[in-house]
Write a protein that binds this DNA or RNA. Structure first.
Lengths: 122, 122
DNA sequence: CATCAATACATAAGTTTCTTATGTATATTT
DNA sequence: AAATATACATAAGAAACTTATGTATTGATG
């Protein structure tokens, strides 16, 4: 059990989109900053989404019509809420299933050749 | 249960290095083409490593001294075998642990808010 | 009350890591 | 003989991040 800060390195690549879609699926609607904080807190600081990654992604998902937005003002400060469109819900499901299956496949790969009694080499 | 060919899309990004290091850890030594075929067969064609991704990666891992090579000839055809160096074994372990932990974290994220009895929104 | 941290958005340049395309050559199958 | 499989390699391009930077409001703190 080591304490290291842990920046989940290059592994986020390819999974960020799915993480965001999943969060929106579970939470109905969220704004950008909220997403970064929620992920940080849910993962115990292990995954910290950078703004440079998140905002362009949200814009792209809006452009592809998977997300729709509504802007609200808290005092003078703006919040842009995102929610899944009907299409976005399908995309979300597809992406989440795909990620789950990919992780299963990875487990198969990582556990291959385990316990075949030729661990002499290591 | 759908039959689709399945190219694991952009998800491989960031995991390929770890997959290769793990295979070499389990198998002692392998050559490039063998790695592509083994992954293909272990994952039931779900992950197909492209040569354009693999060979540059192997070269990089050799340059960083995580891998060492020996060339053999089968008839006139050359095979370049790769194996983990001592350093490579450490790198391998680190990367594999990191990937396992990352996948655990992903599961936490994907399962967050499940069963909190407010699934009315979807 | 001034300053710093937190909240909230955004974009641009640069890097990493893949895909796609291409090339060379030997060996096997039809 | 031609197509497929084996076996290596590299280059151009795309995707998806990081790092850096910018603007502005709000809350906390000495």
């Amino acid at each position: 059990m080591y304490i290291c800060p842990m920046y989940s390195s290059e592994l986020i690549k390819g999974t960020l989109r799915t993480i965001v879609l999943n969060l929106l699926k579970e939470n109905g609607r969220m704004y950008g900053y909220e997403i970064t904080q929620r992920v940080k807190e849910l993962t115990d600081d292990k995954i910290q989404i950078t703004e440079g990654a998140l905002y362009p992604l949200l814009h792209a998902l809006e452009a592809s019509e998977d997300l729709e937005t509504e802007v609200e003002f808290i005092g003078k400060r703006q919040r842009k809420y995102y929610r899944l469109t009907k299409q976005g819900k399908q995309t979300s499901k597809k992406k989440i299933d795909e990620l789950r299956e990919f992780m299963e496949t990875l487990h198969i790969l990582l556990d291959a050749n385990k316990g075949t009694s030729h661990g002499l080499i290591n």
